[in-house]
């Protein structure tokens, strides 16, 4: 053949390899690409309680005016307008994956805390975001209802409770005052101005080690 003279056999061989490989790309069966992390990894992330942040820890970060927290209310708009945690952003669950909200969820600058009335919707939102590989997301344990019953309206401990319960109570009471709740006993002390030092409960904030997410896709 004419081409045999024109092209050395080894060049034919090399071009055959390229054509076969490129043709293989066209012919290989296509399947729907995995979106996000693998189900196995998602499961192990989802069953670990690491994502929860307690109401006490959140209150502590509020009061110390931690600039790195970003609260996201995943309930619908009407309940958001009715009552929410101070300084939070509303992203209704059904609009969670809108492009507009991507900047809030998919970032590394803030610790995003998702919350709803209890932790149900927030958990659902968290799992979806985790599948997409978003980082720094947390869920407020118990949601607003828990926030109300622990921080805004803490239950006074009874006499026979341990000392830590009283310390916790005084922390929570002080926190609730910070958020605007007033107590009757505040009247008596209100005259010398709040000099009463409430023993600040030190909440051990777990320093999370940043592990680069291996695997993934």
């Amino acid at each position: 053949m004419k081409t045999k003279k024109l092209i050395a056999p080894r060049y034919l061989f090399l071009s055959a390899i390229l054509i076969i490989l490129a043709g293989g790309l066209v012919l290989i069966p296509k399947f729907e690409k995995h979106e996000g992390i693998s189900p196995e990894l998602l499961l192990s992330n989802a069953i670990s309680p690491e994502r929860y942040i307690s109401t006490d820890e959140l209150a502590d970060r509020y009061i110390s005016r931690d600039p790195t927290i970003l609260l996201i209310d995943v309930r619908d708009e009407s309940s958001f307008n009715e009552n929410t945690l101070p300084n939070s952003v509303n992203i209704p669950l059904n609009k969670l994956l809108d492009e507009n909200f991507d900047a809030y969820l998919n970032q590394t600058a803030y610790d995003v805390i998702l919350f709803s009335n209890d932790s149900f919707k927030a958990n659902q939102a968290w799992i979806l975001c985790n599948r997409l590989g978003y980082k720094n997301l947390h869920v407020l344990k118990g949601g607003i209802n828990e926030w109300f019953s622990t921080i805004i309206n803490p239950k006074e401990p009874t006499e026979n409770m341990p000392k830590t319960a009283f310390e916790l109570y005084s922390f929570r009471k002080a926190a609730s005052m910070y958020f605007g709740v007033m107590y009757e006993d505040q009247l008596k002390i209100a005259v010398p101005k709040k000099t009463k030092t409430t023993p600040k409960l030190v909440i051990p904030i777990k320093k999370k080690k940043k592990i680069p997410t291996e695997g993934g896709c």
Partner: peptide, 13 residues
């Protein structure tokens, strides 16, 4: 990519 490969090989030739 397949077309690019073909174009490349033709160009070489």
């Amino acid at each position: 990519i397949f077309c690019l490969t073909i174009v490349a090989l033709l160009a070489f030739f």
